[in-house]
Design a protein around this nucleic acid. Structure first.
Lengths: 146, 146
DNA sequence: GAGTTGTTTTGATTTAATCAAAACAAGTGG
DNA sequence: CCACTTGTTTTGATTAAATCAAAACAACTC
């Protein structure tokens, strides 16, 4: 399941100009193990391999790593903010309205179709965020709402 | 500024199968006057023309009107949930990263281009939500962040 | 005009997140 | 290898957004 060795993670942290600490390694490992996790979920994961870490530390680490460009935060209706490894691949998210699970979806239609709103009203558009809402395969099998 | 008379608003509420009450009228008027408002903003507006209304009532009214299909709620990173009149026009939003102001943008590229993710992983996609982030004209004139 | 049902008020509670100050540790340079 | 500086984490309190429950109340129907 681990795509990255600790050594690789250490290099990524240091490469971003940040000090390498145990909580930061643990957070990166947690995101690697469970992408699209929120702060609480990351905290739960981190606690198991680095007990004594505080939830506030996790928030701080997530914010620092996001600012440094190692992680990306995305927030969507009805859920806490979630984090994933930052990849400059312009992908989007498909979220299940029932179980809130998240799938990555590449943005393939042309290059970056959604970057061009029809009328931009003078806005300098920097990024376009696309979220697809629907029912995941598992939840489609459920008879009704639980 | 008022697009709708009270009589029209009353008909819309009743048409949705809901009882017509003063707070509901006041909330619809507030949304009409300030689209893309959050609950607190609506509350501030409502208070002026119907003092004694509670914030919780505003939350309740917003939820009821949203469930009934008269309003649409949208939530975006860094802001509280906002409400607008529901229009079945598949429009999207352009939000200023600096001042958080919102502009509607029609979805014109073809019909509903964003409804078709490349690989849907078995998801039954119901809606696609597109948010453009950037700097509004006013904030582009600011030398730097305030 | 009285009754039933749906709505609003009042007040407490939850969740997600942020802030500030003190304790601590990573990476420098001696 | 030790001490210093700076950045990080902990501890504890606080905020913002929203939700819940029960009692008071008002809209629509008969």
């Amino acid at each position: 399941m681990h795509e990255f060795t600790d050594q690789m993670l250490i290099e990524r942290i240091r490469g971003a100009g940040l000090k390498v600490t145990a909580p930061r390694l643990a957070v990166l490992r947690a995101i690697d193990a469970g992408p699209h996790s929120d702060a609480e979920t990351v905290f739960g994961q981190v606690k198991t391999d680095l007990p004594g870490t505080s939830l506030q530390a996790v928030y701080g680490v997530l914010t620092a790593l996001t600012t440094a460009g190692l992680l990306r935060k995305f927030e969507s209706a009805g859920s806490a903010g979630r984090y994933e490894r930052y990849l400059n691949d312009n992908h989007h998210h498909m979220i299940c309205t029932s179980c809130k699970s998240v799938q990555d979806v590449p943005c393939v239609v042309g290059q970056a179709p959604c970057f061009s709103p029809a009328a931009n009203h003078g806005f300098a558009v920097a990024i376009a965020e696309v979220t697809f809402w629907g029912l995941c395969p598992a939840c489609q099998l459920q008879p009704q709402t639980l």
